[in-house]
Design a protein around this nucleic acid. Structure first.
Lengths: 137, 137
DNA sequence: TCCTAGTTTAGAATAATTATAAACTAGAAA
DNA sequence: TTTCTAGTTTATAATTATTCTAAACTAGGA
């Protein structure tokens, strides 16, 4: 359980003023055991269901973008015209099931590369992401 | 050089009636040495520039979708709200450069996996795609 | 308590894609 | 060769995801 103080520190340390909205969104995202996959739209639904604490969609978008830039969440590769995010920021990989459109985490150590190419001149590797697409057996 | 006949056969073999528009698009896509990365929008520009052969944007979208379903092109994973396609349908991988937003092919044999996880029960692996994100050195 | 830069907000604007329904056409059948 | 029809194309409208805008609000230092 992440205490409110921890969350506020997390925000402060990335130069984000800890507003009511950001604290609430951060709680939703980080105060959980399992990693969480979401889009702006699903997060919005989760937060604003049952007419509780209303946070505008624009703020959801702003906050997600801010958290991404701060490195608290990461964006996942897909071939959907939608941005997917993951609260698991450790380098890791995904199964993608086109039937259910669901992503599942694959632990970093579950994938080991034997050979990868050299990056082009002047560039270095920032990240390596593996997506394994599934189909019915 | 793919002859018109070849292209017509390709279309027929995937149950696509060889219309003027489809033949023209297929030529643009497949009648070239190097593989080709594109979006619906870039393909549209390339085809309709200089007021030559006008093909409507809707047809571009329809045809790209049809070619994808037929397996003549494949969709690439990105984190852009845009669908990228590749005329290289052999299993292969990509460098992604966020600065230029350009994708570069990596040959299949340039990446060798030493260990990959077992797929979940009832599923098998359809495809494995590696994306290596770059940054300035 | 006051002040102000940073933040939130509703709603407009934009961008990518999909749907619609009328006009057109490939190609089989007469 | 003409006729017919299902498949295709098209312009345009609709939808979906996201970003922009500018006015109202607020955290927190002075």
């Amino acid at each position: 359980m992440q205490q409110k103080k921890e969350i506020i520190n997390k925000l402060r340390s990335s130069n984000l003023r800890p507003t009511k909205q950001r604290i609430l969104i951060a709680k939703k995202l980080f105060d959980r055991k399992e990693t969480f996959h979401f889009t702006a739209e699903t997060l919005n639904k989760e937060i604003n269901r049952k007419g509780q604490n209303k946070i505008s969609l624009a703020t959801i978008y702003n906050t997600v973008e801010a958290f991404k830039r701060a490195g608290h969440i990461r964006e996942i590769l897909t071939n959907n015209c939608k941005s997917y995010y993951d609260t698991n920021i450790k380098s890791h990989h995904h199964f993608y099931d086109p039937d259910s459109k669901k992503l599942t985490d694959i632990d970093y150590q579950e994938v080991i590369m034997k050979k990868i190419p050299n990056p082009p001149k002047g560039k270095k590797i920032k990240d390596l992401e593996v997506v394994i697409s599934l189909q019915k057996k």
